[in-house]
Amino acid sequence: MQSIIKARNLILAYENEDVIIKNGNLDVKTNEFVFITGKSGSGKSTLLKSFYGEIPVRAGELNVCLTSLNKISQNELDKLRQRIGIIFQNYRLINEWSVEKNVMLPLIIKGISRSNCEKQAAKLLKHVNMSHKADKFPLELSGGEQQRVAMARALAHNPNLLLCDEPTGNLDEYSSDIIWSLLMSAREYLGTTIVVVTHHIPMNLRISYRHFAIENGAINEIN
């Protein structure tokens, strides 16, 4: 299988701060489900941010979706991000926009026609069982409902790679189970590669997955 994320001797650090990821090595294949765990402050979210160019590569090599992130131009980065979906712990929905319009956002950015935006939004809201809330606004929804909308938005532009930063961290067990089920179906039916940063891997997942742990700046695969 083709690599969708490949890091070699990767070094990541915020400006004027200590190195967070030291000589990191990682190889994620297309259509894999991958967990990245580690203690708070270990660099999990930093690593995830590097995959979509929010944190620049300090040294080493990083390729995502066949694109090098070493000294990447803004134009190339914009193109790369059109192939990536992102789900955050705090949802990051636009409170002034309806649920439907929030889901349409990635398509609006790409310049897709309104009719096609509406069709794709309707399809994805049905997939996450939120069609009945299409005209509602984020603050009218529960946390679990907001995360399902965020997932529909992340999948709207059919990304090759879905990055999830503690996607169930603020949710109760019932809502968390729904999110995990939706993530598994995205991988199974859409062929999306899933990478999840989390403190804890759910015990009841009935899927094969790979597990990497970050400790003292190193990325180690757990077998």
Rank of each mutant, 00 (worst) to 15 (best):
I5A: 10
K6T: 09
A7W: 06
R8V: 14
R8H: 03
N9L: 08
N9I: 05
I11N: 15
L12W: 04
L12C: 11
Y14L: 11
D18N: 15
V19T: 05
I20K: 07
I20V: 15
N23M: 02
G24R: 07
D27P: 05
D27E: 15
D27L: 06
V28L: 12
K29R: 14
K29M: 02
T30A: 14
F33R: 12
S40P: 06
G43I: 05
T46A: 09
T46W: 00
L47A: 05
L47I: 03
L48N: 04
G53W: 05
E54S: 13
P56V: 04
V57N: 03
R58H: 05
R58M: 13
L66M: 04
S68R: 07
N70Y: 11
Q74K: 12
E76M: 11
L77F: 03
L80Q: 10
R81E: 09
I87R: 02
F88A: 10
N90H: 12
Y91S: 09
R92S: 12
R92I: 02
S98E: 07
S98N: 06
K101M: 04
N102S: 08
V103K: 05
P106N: 06
G111H: 00
S113G: 09
S113P: 05
R114D: 11
S115E: 13
N116V: 12
C117N: 12
E118P: 02
K119Y: 03
A121I: 08
A121Y: 00
L125H: 09
V128A: 03
N129T: 00
N129D: 14
N129S: 13
M130R: 01
S131C: 02
A134G: 00
D135Y: 08
K136A: 15
K136E: 13
K136I: 00
K136C: 15
P138V: 13
Q146K: 14
Q147Y: 07
Q147I: 01
V149K: 08
A152Q: 07
L155D: 06
A156I: 05
N158F: 02
N158H: 11
N158Q: 14
P159E: 03
N160W: 00
L161H: 04
L161N: 03
D165I: 03
D165G: 11
G169L: 02
N170Q: 09
N170T: 05
E173M: 10
E173P: 01
I179L: 08
S181G: 15
L183F: 06
M184G: 14
A186L: 11
A186H: 03
Y189H: 14
V195P: 02
V197F: 05
V197G: 09
T198D: 11
P202V: 10
M203W: 00
R206I: 01
I207C: 12
S208W: 00
H211N: 10
E215A: 11
G217V: 07
I219V: 15
N220K: 14
I222F: 09
